[in-house]
């Protein structure tokens, strides 16, 4: 007989004394336009402390005063100290309000939450990064992490597809990365335009021709669901193993900590056991309609 069966022995367990539902206030240091509808915010805690440490692929819940809160992946460097960085595309009420923020304004941040890219599995082997559109943002921390400790890893290949040349993110960085010996960068666009001499076509076309020759390489994919599905299939055709391919999923989220029920994807709870999944873990769900 337990002491109080009606009142089960529950404890209020909170990590580090922080209620995960209450935001920490950050100040906007700087906002940089990436393209016509995408911008990158740099944030530092208003209390003068350091930003929360995070792992590549994790996300924060960002709260705009009185407007709302949304999950956004972290796009900065997970190893070096520096401001918290989020790259955001204006698609809804909250992101449009964020685009109007000015340096000195403050926002609420909860997190980081969720699973991360398995960068540790890439030690000593090749990394293939496949990104579509804004999907490059959650993968940029991987690039920072690998280039920051370059000799630990094998070849790094970035295959990036954008809708149009003017929508390509981090253009200056892409040039710098591609011009260094650190990584191979291949970019394609769905539609070309005047002055574009690069590839035209979907990103799967790049996978077909990418230098993938080391067995044991890992692939990290982020972009629209259909792009991730076809990219994974193309990588499998190129001889990669299912258990070396990872994708990052997205669904509506209200709590970010597995309590609100919104981000369910089949039996998955994306904010908690995702957003990064091994491909064979969600293969049977990808491509199913309205899941």
């Amino acid at each position: 007989m337990s002491p109080e069966p009606g009142s089960i022995n529950l404890t209020d367990r909170i990590r580090g004394g922080v209620d995960p539902m209450v935001p920490r206030i950050y100040n906007v240091e700087r906002i940089r336009r990436n393209n016509h509808d995408t911008f990158t915010m740099e944030l530092n805690p208003a209390d003068g402390g350091n930003p929360e440490p995070f792992s590549a692929g994790q996300f924060n819940m960002l709260y705009i005063f009185g407007v709302g809160e949304i999950p956004v992946s972290i796009s900065g460097d997970p190893v070096q100290d520096g401001p918290l960085m989020h790259t955001i595309r204006e698609v809804g009420t909250v992101t449009r309000a964020m685009a109007r923020l000015k340096p000195g304004d403050s926002i609420g941040v909860r997190g980081p939450f969720g699973s991360h890219w398995p960068v540790e599995l890439a030690v000593g082997t090749d990394v293939v990064i496949v990104a579509g559109g804004i999907g490059l943002a959650p993968l940029r921390p991987v690039i920072y992490q690998v280039t920051g400790n370059r000799s630990r890893y094998g070849r790094m290949v970035l295959l990036y597809g954008a809708r149009a040349p003017k929508e390509i993110l981090y253009q200056r960085q892409l040039k710098a990365w591609g011009g260094s010996f650190d990584m191979d960068v291949h970019v394609t666009v769905d539609r070309g335009e005047r002055g574009w001499n690069g590839e035209i076509g979907v990103v799967t076309g790049l996978i077909r021709r990418a230098p993938l020759d080391r067995s044991g390489a890992i692939a990290l994919i982020c972009g629209p669901e259909i792009m991730m599905r076809f990219s994974a299939q193309e990588l499998l055709r190129r001889g990669m193993d299912k258990d070396r391919i990872y994708v990052s999923m997205e669904r509506n989220m209200k709590c970010g900590v597995g309590l609100c029920g919104h981000c369910q994807y089949g039996a998955k709870i994306i904010c908690k056991d995702g957003p990064v999944y091994r491909y064979d873990d969600i293969e049977s769900l990808l491509g199913r309609r309205e899941v």
């Binding site: 009606g6 009142s7 529950l10 404890t11 900590v257």
Partner: peptide
């Protein structure tokens, strides 16, 4: 209880109100 009070993260308001129940 299992969903809101026994996972990695808990709903603090649920936990508090569930205590002391007869």
């Amino acid at each position: 209880d299992k969903v809101l009070a026994e996972g990695e993260f808990v709903d603090r308001h649920y936990v508090a109100s569930r205590k002391g129940t007869f």
